[in-house]
Amino acid sequence: MSGSTRRASLRTQRRLERYALPVLVGVLFLCMWDALVRISGSDLFPKPIEVARGIGELIEKGLLHKYIVASLFRVTWGFTLAMAVGIPLGLFMGWFRWAFHALNPVIQVLRPISPIAWIPVAILWFGVSDAAPIFLIFLASVFPIAVSAAAAVANIQPVYVRAARNFELSRFDLFRRVIVPATLPQIITGLRIALGIAWLVVVAAEMIAVSSGLGFLIIDARNAGKRYDLVVAGMVMIGLIGLGLDLLVRRMERMDVVRWGYHNQ
């Protein structure tokens, strides 16, 4: 085999692995799902085709669109607030050692408390309104964001700070021209993790605290007539949108100003 044909066949093989393989596994998964439902004879758990029809029904009634917007709205607010608090807080803790020693214990105690455990408190404080899930999303994402920003500052290559000091940058310029860009890659990684958690939490919060959104859809479909086709339809949508959010943050990781941060890892 000549060199160029071998290269070509290698390329074909890579393309098959990259695109054909996942499609094949996906189809296999759906077939197994379908087969298992048929074998079990369950009349409640839906077959894939019934889920697809359920999604169609939700689109027709305009519910899907409405619920997705409601969920994304809450995530956007909660997550934006978490960024606005978490990034400055983390940078502050990373830069001043005393701030780290003062605040880290509190954060480390609050962090492992599941946001779900906060639901009663959230309802107490905010009632059954959008504010409750927004608060829960904020709580769920602010700690990972702050912790990763603090770690990012601690991990700055000392040589960058020394070079900046050599050029006699003012405190503000040091922050703007060196600290922020040097920490950005790791901060974005923290945002990605936090957004994943936020998306998990919004669904849980909507099951209890409000009457709209994808989480509410799932609980409502079950309670109002055991419509498991709609339950699973809601689950599928949650999965797809979660994937979309992750891809969005991954796009940020490919920006020229941060790509260096992932290059060596």
Partner: peptide, 30 residues
């Protein structure tokens, strides 16, 4: 303290990876 009239070239390379060549070279000329 360090002084911008005396510049240090570092062993571990202190070029800022988030800036282009032009931006790096112009770093002290804002």
């Amino acid at each position: 303290r360090p002084d911008a009239r005396r510049i240090f070239v570092f062993q571990e390379n202190g070029v800022f990876p988030w800036l282009t060549v032009t931006q790096n070279v112009g770093f002290g000329l804002q």
